[in-house]
């Protein structure tokens, strides 16, 4: 009995000591939310990737819409990406292609290929461009994170699913950002061990919780963490949008021509 108290006392002391040492070891501003987010971003930096994506939208009544997409993506610059999506299912839209060229300082270029017309059309849409495929992910949610759009006034600690986490509150830097993103606040849970986001809570402009993103699954590829299962639950409308990634390959030096209108158009009916 006495021994057990001794040992637990010791381990507590050790743990506290370790924590203090660690905290000292980290630079003082490490507790800064922006720095943490930057570190998270750094940890998921891949050059390019391909994957088979399944998007499952489930509405409040439990009806589902399932889409299968072949995804190609690459970082064109540090904070701009290119992305090509080719729809596999459902059958009546098979072959539809969607090419997005991101721009930091102006609206993204978006091109669409409709196999029924065999034409590429440029699609212009407002600002950050609404939701992706009628799901609960906005283009902003799935795009390259833009750290400068947010301030990080507070960082806390908590435990989520047994994992020690930072709790980082992000607030829009301006009313314009709030308007464009539709969020008044995002709370990120960053798992300390892997330095990856495992949950984000999105608050709408009325400051009410709107969506919860959870990431139950990730894999480590070439030294970076890759999220393979994302669940976005819209708690207001009781709808869920899931994304599952399979057959992921990263950093294969995808050719530039994959992200051109010509390649978008190169699709043959099977």
């Amino acid at each position: 009995m006495r021994q057990r108290i001794f040992w637990s006392g010791l381990s507590l002391a050790l743990a506290v000591g370790l924590a203090v040492t660690l905290a000292r070891a980290l630079p003082q501003n490490q507790k800064d939310g922006r720095k943490i987010m930057q570190q998270v971003l750094q940890g998921s930096r891949w050059k390019d990737m391909t994957a088979d994506v399944t998007l499952i939208i489930t509405n409040a009544k439990g009806d589902r819409r399932i889409r299968k997409i072949k995804l190609f993506s690459r970082k064109r610059t540090d904070d701009e990406s290119d992305m090509l999506m080719r729809f596999i299912e459902p059958a009546d839209v098979a072959g539809t292609g969607f090419l997005v060229i991101e721009h930091q300082n102006r609206d993204d270029d978006r091109y669409l290929f409709l196999p029924a017309l065999r034409r590429v059309k440029r699609i212009a849409s407002s600002g950050k461009g609404g939701n992706f495929m009628g799901s609960d992910y906005t283009y902003y949610d799935i795009g390259e994170p833009k750290l400068d759009d947010w301030t990080y006034p507070s960082v806390g600690d908590t435990t989520l699913d047994g994992q020690a986490c930072y709790v980082i509150t992000a607030l829009p830097v301006s009313p314009k950002i709030a308007r464009e993103t539709g969020y008044s606040k995002i709370v990120h849970y960053v798992e300390k061990a892997r330095m990856t986001i495992i949950r984000s809570d999105y608050y709408d402009r009325r400051a009410k919780l709107q969506k919860i993103l959870t990431i139950p699954e990730m894999i480590r590829l070439a030294g970076i963490w890759f999220q393979t299962h994302l669940i976005m639950k819209n708690v207001q409308d009781n709808r869920t949008s899931e994304m599952k990634f399979e057959n992921i390959n990263i950093n294969q030096n995808l050719p530039k021509r994959y992200f051109t209108q010509r390649y978008l158009q190169r699709w043959q009916r099977r």
């Binding site: 939701n131 495929m133 009628g134 283009y139």
Partner: peptide
């Protein structure tokens, strides 16, 4: 029918859920 499905898909590309 394919044209229609693809038009709808096109509209949905950037639509709100339940648009």
């Amino acid at each position: 029918a394919e044209l229609i499905a693809q038009y709808l898909q096109l509209y949905e590309m950037s639509a709100k859920p339940d648009e």
